[in-house]
Design a protein around this nucleic acid. Structure first.
Lengths: 215, 215, 215, 215
DNA sequence: TATGAATGAGAGTTCATTCAT
DNA sequence: AATGAATGAACTCTCATTCAT
């Protein structure tokens, strides 16, 4: 039988079997951990299912029991990150109206730092062409929506369209926080400081623009 | 300002034979053009030497005569982009002290737009782990040096260390201009406008900081 | 009547490369021969591309250069058989009006015996679900059309619809000639004799029915 | 006439555990039913034990308790069919001396039609090379013996050797009745009618030959 | 006893690279 | 020098079968 990979189609989490026993749950966790490492080290295409299986102490057949394709495994990883990103943003949105813009700039950079390990795997996966395009689309949209919320809370009166454009760009800028981790510690520290400054000045400028318009 | 090597001969790693005759030069150009297209369409890993050969009307054996490995071909492409990026930045540096910061923000975004086609191939290649790490390292360093120059010219008195940190972050932000091209036209337009605003407020803030320090 | 392609070159199948050099043509011949043996011995599903490659002294990659999938290889084999079957039937149709029915019965059984080696591979392939359904469909239709021609020539006045039904059944009966080759020699000889007798009496009966109708 | 073993216990090869309790017998029946469906739909090689287990509502481990290998499951199915075929032929043999040859031709075609569902699974299994060769051998021999009986009853004086040759060929011809079911209804109807005519003329011809010899 | 998670050999297929012509 | 046929290691994925629970 020919071996072309299947498509995940509509299933949000193409998952062969949801593990029902404790043992299975541990195995899935081990697989995801190993997969994240391998995807980060090698990149999506160069990562092999064989290595992921070996590193997680799983037989290749068992790996495929839980994740029917390489793309499904990547999707799953992405989805998990998406969840924590989106809830992180939601939390931030709740507090945003009580924060200074300096505090918000700080919090945004920190948010990314918190998610750094997972972020690295996302960088390795978001641009891969395999797996479900839907998952990546969803991930992007949820992140943008969450970030828009934060911005509109932090800058009352900010028009939705501008909030959206800012969110798109903001998410891109914050990606730099993950990228920065590849730098030497001194550079990294300075870049992160610079990022806070960038965000601060940008947010202030946006607030002034809103104030000028409403006056 | 240090320069990138003009000729491949100067690059110490797996490197293409420099074609001596006109015919060879045309062939190399055709290969590079095809390779750029294929790398962009498929990504580095999924791109095949066979397809690059076919699309450039070259026999696979001839392709390997000019570029001994796939990685070397990618390196070469990266090097060419690096060259045009660096010279673009050098040009900008010359004019930077006569520009307003608004003008500079505009010019930076435009610079990236000019290089967009080539930029796309860079995006496809910089994260690929194949080929020479040195080439990527060089590419990054030269870009950063060039950008630092621009910033120090535009903001007299800007300390070198901060210029470097800003350059690192600036280059990352500008990458968003290429990424934005994947968005729908309306979003893309707004994001680019937002990017100009971001750069403007950031540059002004940096200038004020310099002024405050020197006062 | 539409014709089967005469030459493999014209075959509309997924074929990676039509070999242009003598060496390539020999290799293709070796592959087809080995493939026929393996398909016959193991059946389509159990036959492996690896074994076909090994038995034909071909590297697996080279095998795939000529036949891009296992199904394509099977299709090609089927098509070659189809060609010889159809031309065998066409020849017979030309002579059928000058033959006695006994002679025709004999000739039909012999036709199958002539094609026996190839026939065996057809038996292994026609029922396989892989490969192009179209090829098998074509093969069946062309065989039936050819056999109908023979019958209408041999029994003038035979209605087309009955000729078709007889052709379908006739082809099935003749398949027994190939199946019979698996028997021990004594049985095989008797079965083939019996087959001639069956065909003779059936053809006579059909001729009488035609005569009775036209009277 | 020799009989096929009634119980699996008598079969000397890899064989299922004979379930002792009612519950087990139901389970085995469910498995065999599901297996027949899957073998027919997918073919022997493509059928999976997992799917058979799932469709019969059996755990894969339990399936293997009753049938130790896939081949054993197939053998068992074949054996059951053999049993009903042989008893059908035995019944026919009892009545054969009181039937006209037309009636017999009709009855033979009908016999196959009656067994059609089971026949389909036989077609899927007899050519599979897995499982016990002995089982298939037995199946063939019992069928041939039964058919010989029928023919010798229907045509008194028919020599045993010719009866055997006719039986072999007859069984092959009748296989066409199952194959015909894949055709469109109109074709199928005509092919079956033709098959009756073929059998009729063949049987008559055989009877005449016997009469001529004995005279 | 019954279950289904686990196993791993092996299948089809790809493609960077080599080398005979 | 130019060509493209040849190579084979490595990859994704399947499934008959086993065995711990």
């Amino acid at each position: 039988m020919s071996r072309l990979p299947k498509e995940n189609a509509a299933v949000p989490l193409a998952q062969a079997v949801a593990p029902q026993r404790e043992r299975g749950r541990l195995r899935v966790a081990a697989i995801l951990e190993a997969a994240a490492l391998v995807f980060v080290e090698k990149g999506y295409d160069k990562a092999t299912m064989t290595e992921i299986a070996a590193r997680s102490g799983t037989a290749i057949g068992s790996l495929y029991r839980f994740f029917p394709t390489k793309g499904a495994l990547a999707d799953n990883l992405l989805l998990r990150y998406a969840h924590s990103t989106v809830s992180g943003l939601a939390e931030l949105a709740e507090q945003a109206d009580r924060m200074t813009l300096e505090g918000l700039a700080e919090a945004l950079v920190d948010l990314r730092e918190d998610l750094l390990t997972q972020r690295a795997v996302v960088l390795a996966l978001v641009d891969a062409r395999e797996g479900s395009q839907d998952i990546r689309q969803q991930f992007r949209e949820h992140s943008r929506a969450g970030m828009s919320q934060v911005l509109q809370k932090a800058i009352p009166g900010l028009p939705a369209t501008r909030a959206h454009a800012m969110a798109v760009l903001m998410l891109h800028v914050l990606k730099g926080a993950a990228t920065a981790s590849a730098e030497d510690p001194a550079t990294r520290h300075m870049v992160l400081a610079e990022m806070r400054e960038l965000l601060r000045s940008w947010l202030f400028s946006a607030r002034q623009a809103v104030a000028a318009t409403s006056a």
